[in-house]
Design a protein around this nucleic acid. Structure first.
Lengths: 134, 134
DNA sequence: TTATATGCAAATTGTTTGCCTAGGC
DNA sequence: GCCTAGGCAAACAATTTGCATATAA
């Protein structure tokens, strides 16, 4: 949507926030990122976390997830993929399936709205919760 | 998920909140519902709106939408359907397409997670924004 | 050297809760 | 009459912002 990318300064906080999110397969909330980054920069502030999450996602280096719940989540995996939300443990797990472009074409043809993308979230019970029989 | 439905008392506030949401094709936030209901019950409180939106969606009479953004949205249409989120005007528009059950079956087969449902949101530019050339 | 980034705290925003009274059944 | 529901205000939680200082370029 946004074609102009701001030239960002390379700061410790910014670099470490990005590194940590890229390392994670979970989809951390801002305060989870805060706790993790705090181990490396003890006096980092929560405001810095929020500002950088915003800026990094504007620049396409991470993805801001459009999910329900009270907190926003961030995803270091910027490639297109789908999510499974587990109703038992609440985790959000990446699904490697390729996005289905045909969905967009079909809807576009049927409705005449201009379709730019889509978001698919599966709801269910993840493997490990199935195993532990909650 | 929840099999037990509470027996709800029929009160003015509850009845009017439900009526108004059912009448709307938009997907109002709690404070939009508040403003609308206030026209008919001037001294209704925001707390009552929130409590009823919660209770009504638990009872399946409305749907709490799991969307991004800072505010929750509610939908009077409880049948399964998809949404188009317009990037130009921000509105969320119902799409009448039937949910694609095959997606769930396929993912379930491929990953072994237990799939209970899915949520599909299309992102694009709605007809009227296309027409008005923002 | 200068504009961007940070720390810190206060402000905002959206939502929930406690408590006491009103009213449906 | 009992127990759920409502009004109101205070509490909470997540996020944003203002401002003075620090720092990357």
């Amino acid at each position: 949507m946004e074609l102009k990318f701001k030239k960002l300064r390379q700061t410790d906080a910014r670099r470490i926030i990005l590194e940590e999110i890229k390392d994670l397969t979970s989809h951390p909330t801002a305060d989870e990122v805060y706790e993790i980054v705090r181990k490396r920069i003890p006096k980092v502030s929560l405001g810095t976390i929020y500002r950088n999450l915003e800026v990094l996602s504007e620049n396409g280096q991470i993805q801001k997830m459009e999910v329900g719940g009270t907190q926003k989540r961030f995803d270091g995996n910027t490639s297109n993929h789908y999510h499974l939300r587990c109703v038992a443990c609440g985790r959000v797990i990446d699904l490697t399936a390729k996005p289905l472009k045909e969905i967009e074409k079909t809807v576009s043809k049927l409705t005449d709205h201009e379709i730019l993308g889509h978001r698919l979230e599966l709801i269910g019970i993840c493997l490990s919760c199935k195993a532990h029989k909650h």
